[in-house]
Simulated assay, not measured.
Amino acid sequence: MKDIQDTAAVQTQILDAFNFRHACKVFDGERKIDDATFATILEAARLSPTSFGHEPYKILMIQNPENRALLRDFAWGANGATNGTAGQLGTASHFAVLLAHTGETMTAGSDYLQNFYRDVKQLPEDVIAFLNDAYGTFQSRDHGVSTPREITDWSGKQAYIVLANMMTAGALLGVDSCPIEGFEMDKTVAVLEQHFGVDPKLYKPAVMVAFGYRADEPAFDKTRRNMDQIVEWA
């Protein structure tokens, strides 16, 4: 009976977190996420699954207000221009850019991946040889992920898994968040290179995300399609 009760409690906790989470446009600028709480959110990111376990992403945390201001003119999804506020850039406790690896590192057989297999995965050479072949087939035949744009987009898909887990972990901890795709890509790439030392040959911004505590309750109730509209059993 206790196991059933525990399972039911966890189910309720999960659904409560998803109902709590919304795309928070303005945060309470006076409330900051404590270090232990945000460390848990980052650990959820680190432990997230990725295709082939390649972890083709990096998280750039931008906390300095002057550094955030460098994005303000062209990050229209985060600068408050649509609602006349300081936006997420001006109010979030924590602000991140998730960077996607490019074909420079994520092409099958790259030096980066060989070092990754040995140093991070600590795999034996026969397994590395198998992965090189399997991943090469995946890129060239199975999914057709071979051009620089295709590989970067594939890496971005993995970054979105990380993004979702960060936001879910935050919601479970009572932390609000907002994923942000509203930014001009070319200008963002240029600023990241010039001011943050991000090599555009190695990384491209996939998505931004802000965390903090809501300034106000959501203006609208959460709406979604019915379950029978999104799930088909075969």
Rank of each mutant, 00 (worst) to 15 (best):
G84R: 10
S93M: 06
N226M: 11
G77A: 01
I33M: 07
A100P: 04
I59H: 01
A134P: 00
A215V: 07
V191E: 06
D16W: 02
K25D: 04
A215C: 03
A215E: 14
G170Y: 05
L99V: 01
Q13E: 15
G53Q: 04
K204I: 09
A169Q: 15
I161C: 09
F38L: 06
P218Y: 00
S177P: 06
H195T: 01
T105K: 12
D73T: 11
D153M: 13
L15I: 14
S51D: 05
F95N: 03
T107N: 11
F18P: 01
R46D: 03
I230E: 05
A17C: 08
A129E: 13
F183P: 08
V198H: 02
D28Y: 06
V97P: 00
K204V: 08
K58A: 15
T107E: 07
E125V: 14
V198M: 02
G144W: 01
T37A: 14
E55C: 13
V175Q: 05
L113I: 10
E193A: 14
I41G: 03
I62D: 00
E150W: 04
K2D: 11
A210C: 07
N67Y: 09
F196T: 07
N165Q: 14
P49N: 02
M106Y: 09
F18N: 09
D228Q: 14
E184Y: 11
K25F: 01
I59E: 00
H94K: 13
L47E: 00
A8N: 12
F27P: 05
H54G: 06
A190S: 13
E55F: 04
P205K: 07
H94R: 12
T188K: 08
D35L: 10
E193R: 13
D35K: 13
R118S: 14
M227W: 11
L113V: 06
R46L: 08
M1F: 09
T82N: 11
F18E: 10
M166E: 02
I151P: 04
Q63H: 10
V120P: 04
F220R: 15
R68T: 00
Q13L: 15
D153N: 13
T102L: 02
Q13W: 11
D133F: 07
K25L: 10
T147E: 02
R141A: 11
E150P: 03
S177D: 04
G197H: 03
E43G: 05
D28A: 09
F116M: 08
